[in-house]
């Protein structure tokens, strides 16, 4: 009987310790959320999403051009990065067992560990230097290069999860191999790939370092990919390092907007994942 009591006490103690660990891990996250929401909310208004930035001291103004700019940057990055990343992933899963496949996989693994600022320098050298000016294109290239390695690896894992029996079923119907890969295997893995892509987009939308010297910034509306463009992250950076109190306020509010965008993308990814799981049961 004594040992039973002892075991119960030990059990409760351990459960409590685990709970404490969870709380400790969540505390910084919760305080971060609280800080951004409490400081950012006062500066939020409809015009913050639609207006152009204003000079120091002038009331009002917003980050409308940065919201549009981030949207354009991320869309361009998707245009470049999604087909490359998903295509490479399908290749690795279906044909990646040879020397070439192993080399590509190893390169992708190394590449996914490269700091984003280094990727920014690469984009600077590839696009900004020959064009002689900063542009959204250069930033989008940097973001795309960041998306490709992780996206290809997660696509590969998802495609490998598709049961071989489905591949066989399709091949036995006289469907060629490439069509089987695209129409059966990729379609079966689609839900998971959409999730992986949304997470990659969310990560890209939150990048600052590779944009600093590629897209630079812009105080005005811009929809031309070959021009410097505002982005939420760089705008936050510029506001935050400024010595002005009202710009600090705007940095908090812009951070809240960015948090909402990234959080919304993550939420979408979760919904997509749940739907894809549901359709398989």
């Amino acid at each position: 009987m004594r040992s039973l009591l002892l075991r119960r006490i030990r059990n409760h103690l351990m459960t409590a310790l685990c709970g404490l660990g969870v709380l400790l891990a969540l505390a910084p996250l919760a305080s971060l959320l609280w800080l951004v929401v409490s400081r950012g909310l006062p500066g939020l208004s409809l015009s913050f999403f639609t207006a152009l930035p204003t000079p120091v001291g002038e009331p009002g103004g917003g980050v409308g051009n940065a919201v549009v700019g981030t949207g354009m940057l991320v869309s361009l990055a998707c245009l470049l990065g999604l087909p490359l990343g998903v295509g490479a992933g399908v290749f690795l899963a279906e044909r990646g067992d040879g020397l070439f496949g192993r080399t590509v996989r190893f390169t992708a693994e190394v590449f996914s560990g490269v700091p984003s600022i280094v990727v920014g320098i690469v984009a600077y050298g590839l696009v900004v230097v020959p064009m002689h000016h900063f542009s959204a294109l250069a930033g989008a290239l940097a973001l795309a290069l960041l998306m490709v390695p992780t996206l290809s690896r997660s696509t590969e894992e998802l495609v490998r999860l598709v049961p071989g029996s489905l591949r066989e079923a399709s091949l036995a119907l006289g469907v060629p191999q490439w069509k089987t890969s695209l129409r059966i295997v990729l379609r079966t893995a689609r839900g998971g790939i959409v999730t992986a892509a949304l997470l990659a987009v969310a990560r890209a939308a939150g990048e600052t370092a590779p944009l600093l010297f590629t897209t630079l910034n812009n105080q005005y509306w811009n929809l031309r990919p070959d021009q410097p463009t505002a982005s939420l992250t760089v705008q936050i950076f510029n506001y935050a390092i400024s010595p002005y109190e009202d710009w600090h306020q705007k940095a908090w509010s812009a951070a809240l907007v960015l948090l909402l965008v990234v959080g919304g993308l993550n939420l979408l990814a979760r919904i997509a994942m749940r739907n894809s799981l549901g359709s398989h049961r």
């Binding site: 049961p163 029996s165 489905l166 066989e168 079923a169 399709s170 091949l171 036995a172 119907l173 006289g174 469907v175 060629p176 059966i184 379609r187 079966t188 689609r190 359709s279 398989h280």
Partner: peptide, 20 residues
Amino acid sequence: PVSIRRRVGMVFQRPNPFPT
């Protein structure tokens, strides 16, 4: 071989309908 498989169909041990 693709044209052969159109003439010679196959049914497998475990049912494998396309889940999507």
